[in-house]
Nucleic acid binder design. Structure first.
Lengths: 169, 169
DNA sequence: TTGGAATGTCAACAAGACTGACGTATTTTC
DNA sequence: GAAAATACGTCAGTCTTGTTGACATTCCAA
C-alpha cells in the first residue's frame, strides 16, 4: 500500500512523530488506555447484572435529563431495539423514568430517578478518579494535547455530538 | 461522595483542569474518540464475517510474530476459549499459522501467513490513516501530551505490556 | 381525512465475551 | 520414575449487547 511509509525524509525531524512506528504506538496506547478507562465502572457493574451499555445510557441521561430515546440513540450509535432492552431493565429496576412527551406524545423523555443518580455518582466517581490521577500525573499541558488529539480523532458526527454536550452545559 | 468536588479553590488556577466538568469532558472525549478509532477497521471487517476480536488478534500477532497463545491471552485480556474461537477461524481461513514450539512442544507459536499480513496491512493502513490525520492536525506537542495521558490512564499491568511492546521493537 | 413518516416496543437471532469441566501432551519437580 | 504443574484445545451453557423484522401509536401534511 502506498500509504505504508509515512516517513517523509525530506522534511527532516519535523514529522518524526508521524512515522508508522509512532502511529502504531499511538494505536496500542489507545487500546490499552481504553481498557483502563472502562475497568473501574465495569468492576462496579459486574455484580449488578448490568454492563457497559447500561453505564453509557445512565451517563448520557444524567448529562441531558429529559432527552428522548431517539436523541440517545444518535449519541450512543446503536439501534433503538438494542437501547430499548437496556432502558427496559433500567426502568424496571427503578433507575430511569420515562415520561410521555407533552408536545409530541410519541416521544419518551428519560430522566434518572434518585437511585439512578446515586448509581451514576458511584460510577462516575470511579471513572473520574482514574481520570483525575492520569491528569494530575500528566499535567495541564499534556491534558490539553490529549484533548486536541482525541477531538481530531472523532468522526465529524461524533464531534458534533461531543461539542454539543460540552458547550451545552 | 467526598471525591465529588475536586475543585480545590485554595490552590487557584493551577488545578482548573482537574474540575469534575473537565474530567467529564475528558471521559466523553475518550468515548467518542474510541468510536472513531475503531470505525475504519470495523467497516473493513464487516463484510468478511470477522469482528473486532479478529482484528486485535491479527494486530498483536503481527507485532509479535511467533508469540504463544498464552502470551496473546495476557495481552488481549480475554479467556482462552474466547481467543480460541477467533484463532480457529483465522487458522481455518489461512490467515494465521500455528507452529508447535521447538523448545517447549506444548506451546503453539503464532504467525501471520501472507494473506494474514495482507489483511493486517489493509486494516492498519486504515487505522493509521486516521491516526496520522489526527496527529497532523494536532501537532507534535499535542501528540506528546496525548501519549502521556494515555499511559497514565492504563492499569499497571497493561502499561507493562504496552511498554514491552513499545520498547521491544 | 387519510396515508406516510416518526417514535418507540416486542420477538427472535447472532457475535463474542464469560465460566466450568474435561482431555491430552509435555515439562518440571520431588 | 511418579506426581504435579503447565500449555493448549474443546464441549456445553450463560450473559451482554449488538442486529433485523414486524407492529402499535402518534403526528403531520397533502
Amino acid at each position: 500500500m502506498a500509504e505504508g511509509h509515512s516517513q517523509n525524509i525530506s522534511s527532516g525531524q519535523a514529522l518524526l512523530y508521524l512515522t508508522d512506528e509512532q502511529l502504531r504506538q499511538g494505536i496500542e496506547a489507545m487500546f490499552f488506555a481504553y481498557r483502563g478507562f472502562t475497568a473501574d465502572p465495569d468492576r462496579i457493574l459486574e455484580g449488578l447484572s448490568y454492563g457497559r451499555a447500561h453505564h453509557r445510557a445512565i451517563h448520557f441521561i444524567h448529562c441531558a435529563p429529559g432527552t428522548t430515546v431517539n436523541n440517545l440513540l444518535a449519541i450512543l450509535g446503536v439501534t433503538k431495539q438494542s437501547l430499548n432492552r437496556v432502558l427496559r431493565t433500567l426502568i424496571e429496576d427503578g433507575l430511569v423514568k420515562s415520561h410521555v412527551g407533552r408536545i409530541d406524545k410519541r416521544e419518551r423523555h428519560l430522566t434518572l430517578t434518585e437511585a439512578g443518580e446515586a448509581l451514576e455518582q458511584q460510577l462516575s466517581d470511579a471513572q473520574r478518579a482514574r481520570m483525575r490521577d492520569a491528569y494530575r500525573k500528566a499535567g495541564p499541558e499534556a491534558v490539553a494535547g490529549f484533548k486536541t488529539v482525541l477531538e481530531a480523532m472523532m468522526d465529524d458526527e461524533m464531534k458534533r455530538a461531543y461539542v454539543a454536550l460540552r458547550d451545552g452545559r
